[in-house]
Write a protein that binds this DNA or RNA. Structure first.
Lengths: 309, 309
DNA sequence: AAATCGAGTTGCTCATATTGCAATTCACTT
DNA sequence: AAGTGAATTGCAATATGAGCAACTCGATTT
């Protein structure tokens, strides 16, 4: 009987289905796992159908569970938006806003804005998590995810917050000691600190001012890392030359602890320009909390972004 | 907080909004009025918004209430359909099916079919209410409404169950005593029992077999009623001539208690052919209960309907 | 003008459902 | 073979909703 179904049960089901785990669903909702178990059981009993296969190690949706999950997720989202609107939150947004961002970008450009944001919207509680691994907002139950660089898919909506510019630079001490390279080719004579992530060594791209295509320039050096801030640290200590997006080093550039070089060329860490995006499930598009946050953030960053101005 | 909202509260809110009354909503859901009051109050508290104006005599939706009502109604319908599907009811429909039909048609052609239907779908509980006043399925919380004749609006979906044919007829005794009119014009010499409903006296229409348009023929008589079965009763007792749809009198025709006359003409109680329709909210379209019922009913009626065969 | 009626709300008690914790089971990992 | 993480089950404390009755308020009736 559809009358014996409870909203919490549906919410929990969606969380369990998204995370494929009773335990993390329980944690996300701040309930004991036992409650989750029982709610799901009650839901299954009400439907007379098994929604999830419980393997010891993993939880998998059954066929009907899969269909039901998709439908219920959509329904709950719609309900939440409708409720939010009715609650007048469209004019005075309130509630919990969960944000996820990359560590470096989040610390530099999200966290500092949060105070402003909270002041403008005192009824919004924010929860900022920083992580560099890609986060699926629907799986994690997060409202907005900020990502730098390429977007893979999907059923998610992205909004460009800013464009990304790279500069080649080094500390004054380094340049004084080793000289300033005059052309990209000259970099082969220098110690270049290279980012090496999951996609291998990040090549350095250059193009003449005004040219359309970037060309790869081979560079070498004695330090590679998958952690940008370590490379930055090394560069500050005069160990070598780095290629970084401006949002990461605008502070160091402005106080002169790093000096841009090769300014006659445009450099990049990507074969094509990449932006900084906010990503969220399609349904969150109309959430006033998300809208308010993005509006504030976009406004604070500006166009061009303040770190490039 | 959208988390403190309960499904029952939403269901009750929809019922209250549809009926504009706490009391009837309570009755429909089989709950004490106090519970309804408290659930609505809780919902309003959760939203921080008043959804309904309580005037002593009537309950009216506020502006936000109106919007929320539309949205929630849609959401609940969607949820119910999804749940029904997940419960495997698509293959084995079950649950409660609420049907409303006009008194005369319902008694003759719906009620007798119900037994068959119940046998075919033993898990469906049916609730048949008969009433001649037009019923809004969403307001009354009914799944299917059967209506004869013109459809007014609306946001509802209609499905034609059968076409309606009229015949002019009288009892053998009447015809023996007063003679058989040879043409429609001759009716002016006879006692015609006329239906007089909310739209005034129902005129009688005739056309030659094959002609396209009906023409009104004035008729008179000493009995008018807004109740078809009273006229029928009078006709059976030899009081006069009646014009009725075949579904109403096929029994009497087949046993000879009424005899059709003027068969060379096509008669009608409406200026244009009118059908018999099943009406339901758009969302119920995909309800397997409703689908099963309509399928069974349509099959039982046949094409042409059994009362015309 | 007083009385009545219908509709909604509020107070109170009782039954039921839910929570949270502890104990148990189970399958996989070390 | 023991250990671990994840789900389920049992149980006591608690919170929640149902149901009934009393109460308020405004409109219609007498």
């Amino acid at each position: 009987m559809s009358n014996s179904i409870s909203l919490v049960a549906l919410r929990l089901f969606v969380r369990v289905a998204a995370t494929e785990s009773f335990a993390t669903a329980a944690r996300q909702q701040g309930l004991p796992a036992s409650s989750v178990s029982r709610h799901i059981a009650a839901l299954e009993k009400a439907l007379g159908q098994r929604l999830l296969y419980r393997h010891t190690r993993a939880v998998r949706l059954t066929e009907v569970g899969e269909r039901y999950y998709q439908q219920v997720r959509e329904i709950l989202d719609t309900l939440d938006i409708a409720t939010e609107q009715a609650a007048g939150e469209a004019t005075h947004p309130q509630g919990l806003l969960r944000i996820n961002a990359p560590v470096a970008f989040g610390r530099r450009h999200i966290a500092p804005q949060l105070a402003n944001f909270q002041r403008a919207y005192p009824n919004i509680e924010t929860e900022l998590t920083l992580s560099d691994a890609f986060i699926d907002p629907v799986q994690e139950g997060v409202d907005v995810v900020v990502r730098v660089g390429a977007l893979n898919d999907s059923s998610l909506v992205a909004r460009r917050l800013a464009n990304q510019h790279f500069v080649v630079c080094a500390s004054p001490e380094y340049l004084e000691h080793w000289g300033v390279p005059a052309t990209p080719d000259a970099l082969s004579e220098h110690n270049c600190l290279i980012y090496k992530g999951t996609r291998g060594k990040q090549p350095w791209y250059f193009r003449d001012s005004g040219a359309r295509k970037y060309r790869i320039r081979e560079v070498r050096g004695n330090l590679r890392s998958n952690n940008a801030e370590s490379l930055l640290e090394a560069a500050l200590q005069g160990q070598g030359i780095v290629l970084f997006p401006t949002w990461l080093i605008h502070e160091e550039l402005s106080v002169g602890r790093l000096v841009p070089i090769l300014s006659a060329w445009e450099a990049s860490g990507e074969p094509a320009p990449q932006g900084i995006h906010a990503i969220f499930p399609e349904n969150r598009l109309r959430s006033s909390k998300v809208a308010a946050f993005l509006e504030t953030l976009q406004g604070a960053i500006g166009e061009p972004p303040y770190w490039d101005a």
